[in-house]
Amino acid sequence: MTDQQAEARSYLSEEMIAEFKAAFDMFDADGGGDISVKELGTVMRMLGQTPTKEELDAIIEEVDEDGSGTIDFEEFLVMMVRQ
């Protein structure tokens, strides 16, 4: 866990972390443990947004600390705390 990830967790109660985990699992449609650009786009479109591929890439790049091209749960928490 990076310093950013530990800091993000410090702002959240266990209840909030559990709620974010449920949301993360909804995004992680294939159950792979991370959110891909495609999965992020699908959920955002379900919520009425129309992000471009470039916008989706930028969202993932902003929090993808390990350079995997996807968002894992710890990175997702950082993203949610920043919102």
Score class of each variant (00 low, 15 high):
1 M>P: 02
2 T>G: 14
3 D>C: 12
3 D>P: 13
4 Q>M: 11
6 A>D: 15
6 A>E: 09
6 A>M: 10
8 A>H: 02
9 R>F: 10
9 R>K: 11
9 R>E: 10
10 S>W: 03
10 S>N: 15
11 Y>M: 09
11 Y>P: 12
12 L>Y: 07
12 L>S: 01
13 S>E: 02
13 S>F: 00
15 E>Y: 01
16 M>F: 03
17 I>H: 02
17 I>L: 06
18 A>V: 07
18 A>L: 13
18 A>I: 15
18 A>W: 03
19 E>Q: 11
19 E>M: 03
21 K>E: 05
21 K>M: 02
22 A>V: 15
23 A>K: 14
23 A>Y: 01
23 A>F: 15
24 F>V: 00
24 F>C: 01
24 F>P: 01
25 D>I: 04
25 D>S: 07
25 D>K: 11
26 M>I: 01
26 M>P: 05
26 M>F: 14
27 F>E: 04
27 F>P: 01
27 F>K: 00
28 D>M: 09
29 A>T: 12
29 A>M: 10
29 A>F: 00
29 A>R: 14
30 D>L: 04
30 D>Y: 02
30 D>W: 02
31 G>C: 11
31 G>Y: 02
31 G>L: 04
32 G>N: 11
33 G>W: 00
34 D>E: 08
34 D>V: 12
34 D>W: 13
35 I>Y: 00
36 S>D: 11
37 V>Y: 15
37 V>S: 06
37 V>K: 03
37 V>I: 15
38 K>E: 13
38 K>H: 12
38 K>I: 12
40 L>C: 06
40 L>S: 01
41 G>T: 05
41 G>E: 13
41 G>P: 04
41 G>F: 05
43 V>K: 01
43 V>I: 14
43 V>D: 00
43 V>Y: 00
44 M>S: 03
44 M>N: 00
45 R>P: 01
45 R>L: 04
46 M>E: 12
47 L>E: 01
47 L>T: 04
47 L>N: 03
47 L>C: 15
48 G>T: 03
49 Q>P: 04
50 T>Q: 03
51 P>Y: 12
51 P>F: 15
51 P>D: 03
51 P>A: 09
52 T>A: 07
52 T>M: 12
53 K>A: 12
53 K>G: 06
54 E>Q: 14
54 E>T: 10
54 E>Y: 07
54 E>V: 09
55 E>W: 05
55 E>D: 09
55 E>S: 06
56 L>R: 01
56 L>D: 02
56 L>E: 06
56 L>C: 04
57 D>Y: 02
57 D>V: 11
57 D>E: 13
58 A>H: 14
58 A>R: 10
58 A>F: 08
58 A>V: 13
59 I>S: 02
59 I>E: 03
60 I>E: 12
60 I>F: 06
61 E>Q: 06
61 E>L: 10
61 E>K: 13
62 E>G: 06
62 E>C: 10
62 E>D: 14
62 E>S: 13
63 V>Q: 03
63 V>N: 14
63 V>A: 07
63 V>T: 13
63 V>Y: 11
64 D>G: 11
64 D>R: 13
64 D>L: 10
64 D>I: 07
65 E>I: 15
65 E>G: 13
65 E>R: 12
65 E>C: 11
65 E>M: 13
66 D>Y: 07
66 D>E: 07
67 G>W: 06
67 G>Q: 05
69 G>R: 05
69 G>T: 14
69 G>Y: 03
69 G>M: 05
70 T>E: 08
70 T>A: 11
71 I>T: 02
71 I>W: 00
71 I>C: 12
71 I>R: 00
72 D>G: 15
72 D>H: 14
73 F>K: 02
73 F>Y: 07
73 F>L: 03
74 E>S: 09
74 E>F: 03
74 E>L: 01
74 E>W: 03
75 E>W: 02
75 E>R: 13
75 E>G: 11
75 E>P: 02
75 E>V: 05
76 F>H: 00
76 F>V: 01
76 F>M: 03
76 F>K: 00
76 F>T: 00
77 L>Q: 06
78 V>Q: 14
78 V>D: 10
78 V>R: 15
78 V>S: 14
78 V>A: 13
79 M>F: 12
80 M>K: 01
80 M>H: 03
80 M>L: 05
80 M>N: 03
82 R>S: 08
82 R>L: 07
82 R>H: 10
